[in-house]
Design a protein around this nucleic acid. Structure first.
Lengths: 107, 107
DNA sequence: TTATATACATCGTATTACGATGTACTATTG
DNA sequence: CAATAGTACATCGTAATACGATGTATATAA
């Protein structure tokens, strides 16, 4: 028996939190998409699929907050590694600051 | 010169935060819609319009987290006052707890 | 009279998470 | 050897929701 309201609320929360967490994780260490899905799960508990992560990364790339480069593997499929641009770092700071401010109102 | 990315991020953050803040404010004191818009602005800085607030209140009503009653005024238009149901109080607690947990990961 | 504030409400649009689905390579296991 | 699961990328259609625009009605101030 799932609670439909809270389930939906979680989904809506992610719309704001995902970009923040993804930038935060990449800021610590350059990552590729599939890895990000796992690290995000580990760190935040968010269980998102590829159909959420890849469009998000593409968006952040287009916005100029991320840059990517393909890295061939000795074996297996090449990986697309993402890192923060200068603008990405600056935006991440602003987002964290805004989050701190907002959450101090209620928590 | 507005930053389109941060402006859009704010909007997406609201999709999760608004229900939380609205329930939080109503929990402190029974409120009507127009009043909520002002109190929300005061407390959180969120500048939302009627086209955001009224559908949100209708939703929370339908979900059973809020209940409402019309109150006639000596002068002017009647006000629809909202208060938390038992389920609303319980959901609000869960949402605050979830928020604390999530934000502790990053802030 | 006109404008502004109060107080309710709805409609169409844009954004975005998610389920479903697809492609391709590697490793395991029966 | 064949089948399954895991890694790694990607796209499409749908549903949820903030927001601009707009509408109705009353009260007050310029």
């Amino acid at each position: 028996m799932k609670d439909e309201f809270l389930k939906n609320w979680d989904t809506q929360m992610k719309k704001g939190l995902l970009p923040l967490f993804v930038l935060h994780i990449i800021a610590e260490k350059t990552c590729y998409g599939y890895e990000l899905i796992e690290r995000l799960k580990e760190i935040t508990g968010f269980d998102i699929t590829e159909s959420t992560m890849y469009p998000l990364l593409t968006r952040l790339l287009k916005e100029g907050l991320l840059e990517a480069k393909w890295v061939e593997q000795n074996t297996g499929i090449p990986r697309k590694y993402y890192s923060l641009t200068k603008d990405g770092k600056s935006k991440l700071s602003e987002m964290k600051e805004a989050s701190r401010t907002i959450f101090s109102k209620i928590i």
